[in-house]
Design a protein around this nucleic acid. Structure first.
Lengths: 349, 349
DNA sequence: CGGTAAATTGATACAGATCAACATATGTGG
DNA sequence: CCACATATGTTGATCTGTATCAATTTACCG
């Protein structure tokens, strides 16, 4: 039977909720503060967590943060219990990776249906993505012995859902493992001293994330944030390091990833140093069109474009308007449609 | 006894020179055009090459170019034979890596002493650098089995001298192997479409060059040019690839090099995108001070600084003058002395 | 010591940032 | 489903940092 953890400082609420769940046939663990909750989550194999936001010691956000940083607990469905359905809180929680919200007071039906629907969703997702995983196997490429083991590791890992705008990891965090993207898109960026951000890369299905930090055994040098709802698979650090040390075909694979990365960065440097804003933006559009699922049209904010091309958002706006006048693109709001990719790619300074 | 190859289309000159050399006790091979000369150079183990510049089929520069691209022949002393001692020719030849010039007509004494002095120089250099190699061994670091083999490879390789401004390889060339810097400094740069160059890196003793291209088995994406007279050691491609595939400690070493490289490039990107010219130049000076042998003072042209910081040479001039006024540096011609490294490093936008 | 290359300085032009006002989209609650 | 609110995008006016062009001055090397 499924196991559920309740983290809630109010004894009445916690115990009555536990009672309901036990009656419904779940195994229940209880924690009366965040710290204990995290401890319990690490000790037991859980299927779902209910967690209050406002708590002494360690609040709900803190719990979620700690759990999401650990490989084992990151993919456990997480439902917040909250007194007032405050807008801000809701957003913040969802952005951090909570799966649902329950507003107190809730009745039995509300509670049980939220839990069931969440567990069911999880199940369906796992089923769905196990298919994606199979298509990925070609990625962990080839014939070597290492490739086979890598496939095993990938197949055995849970898949983690990431909602749009949610952060996968922050610059300065230490890597838990290697992220393999299953679906969606994630952007990585660095922050300048003045807070402006510069996009370093855009990653889609089949890409590895955090290769650098993992292999150097150092902190992340970039922040990774989901552009769309995405799915990633976290391959544990030790297993990967082990594989790299054991199988030349695997280490060669990573070497190639790194070396290609360098090439890209060098090109970006050259571009940034000597190309006009016009040309830079055109290149960004071309790159996006190649990397995003639909090559002819996509949604992207001016802010993101600006941080990709290293310029001001207003300038992006103006330049896009120019492009539109020149029949290179069509645009409406944040929706951009490429009309003449060829001419964009050949744009001169 | 030493073996010498003469490449010269004029039969009289070639044969009389060969005669002199044979009388002096050298083994002599002769070629009456560039192509045949290159063939002979690949077939025989040579100690020195004499080569005419003006020849049909393949001229002296072509011969030198082809030989310098091959691992086996790159370090053979190369002396040009030339009719008029034209300044331009001289420069060009020396920049391409010729070791000496003999102006026709030359007498026996001139010829023999040039050859002897060149062979002697070579010998002394090898002796000198074999010491450098020993100090390098710590580089091919550590304890693994691979490290030991790498040491062997390095110890067995000839050392190649590179004169200031000489090009080690061009963007688009295919790598022969991996360059390990023994002494001096080499800069790598990329060319923008309009011909301006952007410096990607500055490499000094103990650095590997061309890691990227070699491991990707692709063309060089940058041009490498000596900043000072330098010495490099060319480790043959096959041997390195072999080592990487065989020993995890070696592949890990390269992975670290690549990953660190990416980090650097990312920082440069951020810098280039959002920092003022002032700050960028300051950072470049700081980086130079860290990478060059003498941290407090060095010689560098405004052009090079400009291409490192991605700006116009005039702007470099102006900014350096500002720095001087602010007592951050002292300068005279292309000679720069750092006065306040700390304040330079902390320069704000 | 003279000729050439490199560095400096001044004047000017202009791309793109910034500030500000406004328009349009997007999402939410009634 | 509409109306409101907030976020996002657009456009205009202005300012500024840096490139560019041109004229000297200074360094460098045989």
């Amino acid at each position: 039977m499924k196991t559920i953890l309740i983290i809630e400082d109010n004894n009445d609420i916690r115990e009555s909720t536990a009672e309901i769940l036990e009656l419904a046939g779940y195994t229940v663990h209880q924690a009366d503060n965040g710290k204990r909750g995290v401890d319990l989550a690490f000790q037991h194999k859980l299927d779902l967590i209910l967690c209050d936001i406002m708590m002494p010691e360690l609040d709900g956000y803190g719990v979620l943060y700690l759990l999401s940083k650990n490989v084992e607990t990151a993919s456990i469905p997480f439902i917040f219990l909250t007194a007032k359905a405050e807008r801000v809180d809701f957003r913040k929680g969802m952005e951090m990776g909570a799966d649902d919200y329950l507003t107190k007071p809730f009745d039995d039906i509300e509670l049980l249906s939220a839990i069931e629907s969440r567990l069911e969703k999880k199940r369906r997702q796992e089923e769905y993505y196990s298919k994606s995983l199979q298509s990925l196997e070609k990625l962990s490429a080839g014939n070597g012995q290492g490739a086979a083991e890598l496939k095993n590791i990938i197949a055995g890992r849970k898949i983690r859902q990431i909602k749009k705008k949610q952060v996968l990891y922050y610059e300065g965090d230490h890597p838990q493992g290697l992220y393999l993207m299953i679906e969606g898109a994630v952007r990585t960026f660095k922050l300048a001293e003045d807070g402006r951000e510069l996009m370093m890369g855009l990653h889609k299905a089949d890409d590895y994330l955090g290769v650098n930090a993992l292999l150097l055994d150092d902190a992340f040098t970039e922040t990774a944030e989901a552009v769309d709802d995405s799915a990633v698979c976290l391959l544990p650090k030790d297993a990967i390091i082990n594989l790299v040390n054991k199988y030349p075909d695997i280490s060669m694979q990573f070497i190639k990833i790194l070396a290609n990365n360098i090439k890209e960065k060098e090109d970006q440097l050259l571009e940034l140093a000597y190309n006009s804003v016009r040309k830079r933006l055109a290149q960004v559009l071309v790159r996006l069109s190649k990397q995003l699922p639909d090559p002819s049209q996509f949604k992207i904010s001016r802010d993101e474009l600006a941080s990709m091309a290293g310029m001001a958002t207003e300038t992006v706006s103006r330049t896009l308007s120019d492009f539109k006048d020149e029949k290179l693109i069509e645009k409406k709001g944040s929706h951009i449609q490429i009309l003449d990719l060829n001419r964009l790619a050949k744009m001169k300074n």
